[in-house]
């Protein structure tokens, strides 16, 4: 397994947000984490990236315990994240934001190649290289955040609600791109409230409810699960 989380507990002060969750992500998979607002999805992602400390349990990446590893070292190990909301640096241009994504890398040629790859995935960004991110639309910033995470050339890509605030057409597009990225060999852990879309494209998925994992299975299984349908898919 590429990522193994075991019995992970995370707290904000005295309030426990995650009560010992366990999940795994295998190499080459797209795994979704779905759940209502406040379930603890973002907390999980922040803990994996190391910007939120664990109160208990462990995170293993490629077999190594990284629970205590500094956040910036985890990027070097191969974990990149596109955070929830507008995580772009608003005062930096598109190019500078992408360069920030490659902050830990020194291979100039590889960085240039990856930048072109990102422009290939998101032609919109190529048209706006010199534009300051803060002046771009929400959708464009979302694309920039995903593209920026790719610039780290990660083994594991964490995407926290990449479709949030996007127009329906763009939502389709961003999910297509996630599949494409995955097919290029990047393992993806995807957090989504848009459960229908996420489950239909995922190999496996976990359902998080108030800090506990209450269900897991293949994307298809969960799509057909009646309780999931009622709670998250909003269909009759």
């Amino acid at each position: 397994m590429l990522l193994e989380i075991e019995n992970m507990t995370v707290a904000y002060g005295r309030i426990e947000a995650l009560h010992g969750i366990s999940l795994t992500v295998g190499e080459g998979e797209i795994v979704s984490l779905i759940g209502a607002n406040g379930a603890g999805k973002t907390t999980t992602m922040r803990a994996i990236s190391g910007i939120r400390p664990l109160a208990g349990g462990s995170i293993r990446f490629e077999g190594e315990d990284i629970s205590k590893l500094r956040a910036d070292r985890r990027v070097v190990q191969g974990i990149a994240q596109s955070p929830e909301g507008r995580g772009c640096f608003p005062g930096m241009t598109v190019v500078e934001n992408l360069e920030m994504g490659a902050y830990t890398r020194r291979d100039k040629a590889g960085i240039t190649a990856d930048m072109n790859r990102v422009y290939g995935l998101f032609p919109r960004l190529a048209e706006r290289k010199k534009q300051v991110a803060g002046t771009m639309s929400g959708g464009e910033q979302q694309m920039l955040a995903v593209g920026r995470a790719l610039m780290a050339r990660p083994k594991l890509l964490l995407l926290d609600e990449p479709s949030m605030g996007l127009a329906p057409m763009l939502i389709q597009q961003i999910f297509d791109i996630i599949v494409e990225i995955n097919q290029q060999g990047v393992t993806v852990l995807l957090v989504e409230q848009n459960a229908q879309q996420a489950l239909s494209r995922s190999h496996r998925a976990y359902v998080l409810e108030t800090g506990r994992i209450v269900k897991s299975g293949t994307g298809q299984e969960l799509l057909n699960d009646s309780s999931i349908k009622d709670a998250y898919l909003g269909v009759a």
Binding site: R46, S49, G50, I51, R70, A71, D72, V75, V76, A80, Q81, P83, G87, F89, P90, G91, M92, E96, E99, M100, G101, Y103, T104, R148, A149, A152
Partner: peptide, 19 residues
């Protein structure tokens, strides 16, 4: 750029690998 990034958003900077 690392300085500007941390000034702007320390958490996101950490996600970029900035120490």
């Amino acid at each position: 750029r690392g300085i500007r990034a941390v000034a702007q958003d320390p958490d996101t900077s950490a996600l970029m690998g900035v120490n």
